[in-house]
Design a binder for these strands. Structure first.
Lengths: 111, 111
DNA sequence: GCAAAATACATAGCTATACAATGTATCTAG
DNA sequence: CTAGATACATTGTATAGCTATGTATTTTGC
């Protein structure tokens, strides 16, 4: 098998997929950046580089899909918490629809 | 909802996904380029631009995952048929494994 | 007590891929 | 005989993930 090809492919699959995962995670709860990386690693075994996440969150904010607020800690570095905006919620509905169709189409092809 | 964001997101999701779909389609049969675009449009509603497919097929060939042969037609333009190589078959097994895990992880998050 | 690792943010530069635009050539239908 | 479908291909652009790097604080191991 072509190892480097698969490695690169996995990275390409993440384009779009990560955005989708993060928005869905934020649907349930507010999270701060570092926590998102940890949560997703535990629940999906997907590793998100910090250099991927922080620019991504800024894009989502620019696109008005999420909002953020700084929360001071009694001890340690302040955390920036992210939450979906109403636009983010509506947008996610459409994304979930598209994903569902894509997924069932791929299921048929793989089987 | 953020329309342009969703449009762009769909394009990003295709990165990696298209490769995966095409390799799986070629698992069953040989196809030529134009035919692949048509087949996938019908079965998945996913539209692949020609400017996407032909460079993609060349990459797959460079990576030794597919092989191609020209087939002359009694009438009309010759067709370039693609088939998986042994390396392509082995590589696809690993990709299917990764996709299966990714998919079930996303299922849990979306639900 | 001090060094290493973990926590928590962030950016710059590199690379890979999808897409629009464009081009060539042949065949078919109105 | 012309528009559209068939069939290939390339060039340039934009996007997004990754590595490397940086700052700062806190915890853990020796």
């Amino acid at each position: 098998m072509n190892e480097t090809f698969v490695t690169n492919w996995k990275s390409q699959v993440k384009k779009g997929t990560l955005t989708f995962i993060i928005l869905n995670v934020l649907k349930e709860n507010e999270y701060y950046g570092y926590e998102l990386i940890e949560q997703i690693k535990q629940h999906t075994e997907i590793e998100i580089a910090e250099g991927t996440l922080y620019p991504l969150m800024n894009r989502l904010k620019t696109e008005n899909l999420v909002d953020s607020k700084w929360v001071e800690q009694e001890t340690g570095i302040p955390r920036k918490y992210y939450a979906l905006t109403p636009t983010g919620i509506k947008t996610l509905v459409h994304m979930n629809e598209y994903w569902k169709n894509l997924e069932s189409a791929i299921q048929k092809i793989i089987k």
